[in-house]
Design a protein around this nucleic acid. Structure first.
Lengths: 172, 172
DNA sequence: GCGCATCGCTGCGGAATTCGTAGGCGTGGC
DNA sequence: GCCACGCCTACGAATTCCGCAGCGATGCGC
């Protein structure tokens, strides 16, 4: 029925979930198209997605479940924390001596830390923090982050206003 | 039926969507609870959410629709772009002379820029960029961002590895 | 005080979606 | 060759979504 939408199956499309060498699952064009659909609307019905990508409703459902199970994708509500009662939010740049990844892991274990990324440049790690108020923010940065062994220095950027927040890389 | 879950309506709960002076809608406890549910699972059925927050299915549906329409919340699929074909991602710190907000708006108009926030600290604006490859990244930073009138300087932090990405501030 | 417009919630019933599962088909290992 | 595996489709049953009418409470004007 959808044969014209999926050009006679390539090897990619036959095994859309196999692992590549770095441990992250390989994604074929159809899975990317599904993600793209869900980036526009996380609640879009499977049948509508199927029509867009050339797959049956059930196949889309199975792929979505797999992508969720693998941790490749999550379907969630996102907001601007500053409009939802959290008074202070900040990005913290961190310099590390020794093992960067273990510091990043330690940061990831903190509930107030929503986002952790290892970087190249004048910071080794960037961490985004969401707090109730100034005291809370101060506590997290000074008492918890700076206390981690291996943290050499930190620099904070307190959020004043969120201007853009999208997940639409698929749609361009 | 759910009378025991919502303690005899407070003023807050009677007018959950009214505007506060800064233009962002005021959110009552029930709407926060709904958002919290959807932060755990963006596809959770309205009936299940209703049971959790003490509202009927239809009421939850109306509130969710309103939150989406107001732009308070979006329900979307989120991924790590680096695992989905985008080879280069970076955070760019920007210093501005003159009107910071107009620069932030200009950045927000760029498709490659997924995240823009005005900050206090040694940068005026932070912008996250998602690119296909090095050439693309270089082009965006050097030709487009640095070309904006008012941009005094930029500093880039190329992403090496995303370690954490959550939206669960509600669940703590 | 009273009517009236507004707003949010509930409770339906019908339409649409989701879910579980059985069966088919191509691929790769043995 | 043959089996195991992965992915797909098909389809009925259960669940969910959706639109709407009605109701109670609030706020406003008079």
């Amino acid at each position: 029925m959808h044969s014209e939408a999926v050009a006679s199956r390539s090897a990619d499309q036959r095994d859309p979930g196999r692992e590549s060498r770095n441990g992250t699952p390989h994604l074929d064009a159809v899975s990317l198209a599904i993600i793209e659909q869900l980036q526009e609307d996380g609640r879009r019905p499977y049948a509508a997605i199927g029509k867009a990508v050339g797959l049956s409703e059930a196949a889309v459902r199975q792929r979505v479940q797999k992508l969720l199970d693998q941790g490749v994708m999550q379907i969630v509500a996102v907001t601007d924390p500053l409009t939802v009662g959290f008074r202070r939010q900040a990005m913290v740049g961190i310099n590390v001596e020794g093992d960067v990844e273990s510091i990043a892991d330690a940061l990831s274990d903190m509930a107030e830390v929503e986002y952790v990324v290892m970087t190249a440049g004048s910071f080794d790690v960037l961490a985004e923090i969401v707090c109730e108020d100034d005291d809370h923010l101060l506590d997290v940065i000074n008492k918890r982050i700076r206390a981690l062994p291996g943290v050499r220095s930190t620099e904070s950027f307190v959020y004043l206003k969120l201007k853009k927040q999208t997940y639409m890389w698929g749609t361009r």
